[in-house]
């Protein structure tokens, strides 16, 4: 008797339609009302701009222009892409992050990393090292592997021996420690310049020989003044050739004394 009231089909006799929804999902097609549909919403945009990081013997520099764009429009001439990470408690090793690409994702990513580094301090009673922070950032990006943060990130700090540490990332968390890296709209313009000027690619020691005997020039730790000039030159050049780069140049110079911030104007055209 109980089963009657549970809506079970009656074994014999005329059938009645009890099911209000189809048991099997209908194949998409002109006859079915509920087929697959495409989303009309694309959750990303490109806010343009470019970033750059170079590490030295006892410092690291992060830089980014401050223009934010939507297509041919300039949203604002001052939207920083550089974030300080982990607060500024006295014994915290300075860490900075640059993000370029989809600015909303960038801001969300920076905020998450900042919170994590702060929480690490509260929970472990010691600051997070830059290597740990770098790996954690990779995890943050990979966690959203199938709905990525659409950003090129560069993390800069000082390693345990006090040398400049620079890590660069792709949007899904692949990362590597490098001497220098350019990211964003003008990366393809700046990176070759950096290869040549920082790592001395395609440079030889003059008079060292002919053909295979020609000795490549060995890279060495560039002094801070030289690096700052390289950054400035990289951006003034990028501004000339890329419409999404310009307005202002923000630099964060990370040394054992903390993070020094510099702002300089760039062309606004």
């Amino acid at each position: 008797m109980g089963s009657i009231f549970q809506g079970a089909p009656i074994p014999e006799g005329p059938g009645y339609s009890f099911r209000e929804t189809p048991a099997v999902r209908q194949a998409p097609g002109p006859s079915s009302a509920a087929g697959e549909r495409q989303h009309g919403f694309y959750p990303y945009t490109d806010n343009g701009g470019s970033t750059l990081g170079i590490s030295g013997a006892d410092f690291a520099i992060l830089a980014g222009d401050t223009r934010s764009t939507s297509g041919y429009n300039i949203n604002t001439r001052y939207a920083p892409k550089l974030y300080k990470i982990g607060g500024d408690a006295p014994d915290t090793p300075p860490i900075a992050l640059s993000v370029v690409g989809f600015a909303a994702d960038g801001a969300a990513l920076a905020e998450r990393l900042d919170t994590i580094v702060k929480m690490y301090r509260y929970q472990h009673g010691k600051p997070m090292g830059v290597a740990a922070c770098a790996q954690r950032l990779s995890h943050l990006l990979y966690m959203k592997r199938f709905f990525p943060f659409y950003v090129a990130a560069i993390l800069a700090g000082l390693d345990e021996s006090g040398r400049g540490a620079l890590y660069s990332y792709d949007p899904v968390g692949s990362y590597e420690r490098e001497q220098c890296r350019a990211g964003g709209a003008a990366a393809s313009l700046i990176m070759p310049f950096l290869d040549n000027q920082v790592n001395f690619k395609n440079q030889n020691v003059p008079g060292s020989g002919q053909g295979h005997a020609l000795e490549p020039r060995k890279p060495y730790d560039l002094p801070r003044g030289t690096v700052e000039e390289l950054v400035q030159d990289a951006f003034t050049s990028a501004v000339e050739r890329h419409i999404e780069v310009g307005d202002g140049l923000q630099m964060m110079i990370i040394t054992r004394d903390g993070i020094e911030e510099v702002y300089r104007d760039l062309k606004k055209d």
């Binding site: 339609s17 099911r19 189809p22 079915s32």
Partner: peptide, 12 residues
């Protein structure tokens, strides 16, 4: 049989 095609597919 009841034609439920107009109803929203619950799994859709």
């Amino acid at each position: 049989a009841y034609d439920a095609s107009y109803l929203h597919d619950q799994n859709g």
